[in-house]
Amino acid sequence: METPKGQGKPGRGGSQLVQRGESSGLPGFYIPSGTLKVIEDFLFSGFHVMLSGHSGCGKTTFGQVWAASRGMAVHKVNCGAIRSPRDWFGRHEFREGTGTVFVSTRFLEMLERPGLIILDEINRTAPENHNPILNLLDDNREVYVEELGRHVRVHPGALFIATRNAGRHHTGTFRLDHALEDRFQEVRLELPPEDVIARLLAEKYAVSADQAEIVARVTVKLDRMYEEDLLSQTMGMRPAFAAAALLGRGHSLETALRYAFAARYSGEGGPESERTLVLQTIQGLVK
């Protein structure tokens, strides 16, 4: 069912879905064409790609959209849910009449088929849990699965993209083993330009072009201020979506920006707090 305009929620968190493929030629997603070409060339040359970037910049969504555009099967592994090394391949289940059986994961199935495997939030599981996939990702491209009693070989058409959020602010993450990190080529995704963000917001929510433009400007400015170490939190697309959603529901611009952006920052310190700085920035950008 189609979500009514103005009341929709961002289905994929920080997605950068746009109506038309932009400079990249990728339908439904904005990514600079140069960046896209580098990613594709890495993948088709047998390298794995690690996508990094601020939260909400579209790392996961990119994999899904790209695979769809190529007509490839795609599977996203939620790495944060991997509790033990064996969780990659399957689990033992008791079934009446059959007894305890090994149920393989879809990840295991996808390894032997052409398609894209997205190792989402790969640094949210403990480093020892990465050990079983180290051989899958190197030149051996195989792993012996005890439960199956055979080697599982990675299909030549199986491609890997991993995503991660790195930095001191991501408290639930682990530092990656260098051996694993070395198996990926890192590509950083950035926020889309202001005009793309504005168009996206205007198309997705019932906001005017002027309002969408202001929200986009605030988003990009706060993102730059994070890069300049003026703010402690990254800025992705999610606050922009939140602000647009509030605007779409009839809130004032001031309220939308205050709750969607400023409330994310600490107010400790009063006039010299981060929240004050964000409020001042918003004040400067809003006419």
Partner: peptide, 12 residues
């Protein structure tokens, strides 16, 4: 605190 708040406007 107020002076710091004023001064940080330059950073914007």
């Amino acid at each position: 605190a107020i002076l710091n708040g004023i001064a940080r406007m330059a950073a914007i």
